[in-house]
Nucleic acid binder design. Sequence first.
DNA 1: CAGTGGTCTAGACCACGCT
DNA 2: GCGTGGTCTAGACCACTGG
Lengths: 258, 258
Amino acid sequence: MTRVKPSSAGEPPLFERIADELRNRIGSGDFPPGTKLPAEQEIAEHHQVSRDTVRRALTVLTQEGLLSAGRGQGRTVRSHERLRWHPGSFERTSARKDLPGSGHDAWQADVIAQGHAPHQDVDLMIVPAPAMVAERLRTTPDTPVVTRRRVRHVDGEPHQIADSYYPMDVAQGTAIMQPGDVTIPGGLMAAAGHRQVRFVDEIVARMANADERQRLELPPVTVVLEHVRTGFNAEDRSVRVIVTVGERMTIVYESDEQ
Amino acid sequence: MTRVKPSSAGEPPLFERIADELRNRIGSGDFPPGTKLPAEQEIAEHHQVSRDTVRRALTVLTQEGLLSAGRGQGRTVRSHERLRWHPGSFERTSARKDLPGSGHDAWQADVIAQGHAPHQDVDLMIVPAPAMVAERLRTTPDTPVVTRRRVRHVDGEPHQIADSYYPMDVAQGTAIMQPGDVTIPGGLMAAAGHRQVRFVDEIVARMANADERQRLELPPVTVVLEHVRTGFNAEDRSVRVIVTVGERMTIVYESDEQ
DNA sequence: CAGTGGTCTAGACCACGCT
DNA sequence: GCGTGGTCTAGACCACTGG
């Protein structure tokens, strides 16, 4: 049944119809998350099409984030839950959310509130500034900058990258240079004597690059959200850039209530 | 030259190396926007691989938004300019940006400021509420709602979709029901007697669906940004949902200066 | 080692745009 | 109508995972 007719007149191509059918069955709960799909061969015989046609359908669904991939593993329906992230409240309410001594920053508190377990790995490095960062820190590309590279995990799975970049002179001799996952009440910027009084956020959708695919353990050709926050101090100098990249997350901004 | 070696040991697959090479040549200005690439056959012969392998490389680049596609048209390098959109300022500064009688709303002013020509098509319809909208308007799916469906063009090309949804009782008998591209100083909500005092924005990256591909004239499998704004009135009732979907745009939020 | 997905080929036919 | 990209097939071989 559900037999797909060979490329009939005018209508959408075979692989697209197969993709649509599978997408519907996933969406309708027919194939709940965790379900292992039949092998490509099997689906091909079932629909009376070539294996390659089935592969094209499955590739589309994989790129949409609905299926996992992997040699020798078969294909599994992924959970489609999206974690909500509130970058707007990160700075403003940090004083309230950072329970002193609790060891939880605003992101971790946010994840816990959504019923999941957060965890992050942090690497402290000095690197030549990537072009995008250099531009925002108003310096020349390849100038050395301090970066704290974070991979944030949720329930043990890598979930988002959050790399922050500081000019050398800002970071030098402050808590910013402290390695590991440190939580400082009031935030690293304040500890460094640079109160962040203003920020600009830029949000973009794009494909993950090779580095991101590796750090987040993503299949090839995956869509990610990129959020770049540039922070300015009281002298209106940009003193920090935070690049956050994640798949399957929802960024949430709420207007100030009045 | 630039001859790709046949699938050698351990290293990345052929099609990926070809994709990387072309991506670099595009990025380095070797193939500036507007350049027409050689035909698939030609590239295949040049690299001594099958046409299918070349197609896979080109498909990746197309999905990354670097190339245009199309039967009988060849492949062209697309402009990679991203338009900046400031949804945060849309509501707050609308009073300043809506020059009375100028016929320009905040979005149009934003586009003009970036040196481009805006234009929008508006359709007024009454439709059953899509699940996502129903949820945010706190009603049941398929309840009739009023929608103003916009396609916003930049320099004559479709650029983003901006569909707003209102509960029937809110829209009834107000300027919201006025067809066409109307610009009302102060905004439609105010004209309808519902001052929007608070909003929640949700931002997601995903693949374009069939409807969006058609309205925005996108190739299959394209990444889009989706921005959903839910507006609340003084009684904290959600009275409007605006769904904005666009490719190659940057969403910008700026913190309030102090 | 059996089964699965990932890469690659060679060829066929179709649909569409351009000139 | 020619040249282009889009779909589809059949088959080969490889790389990885799991029992």
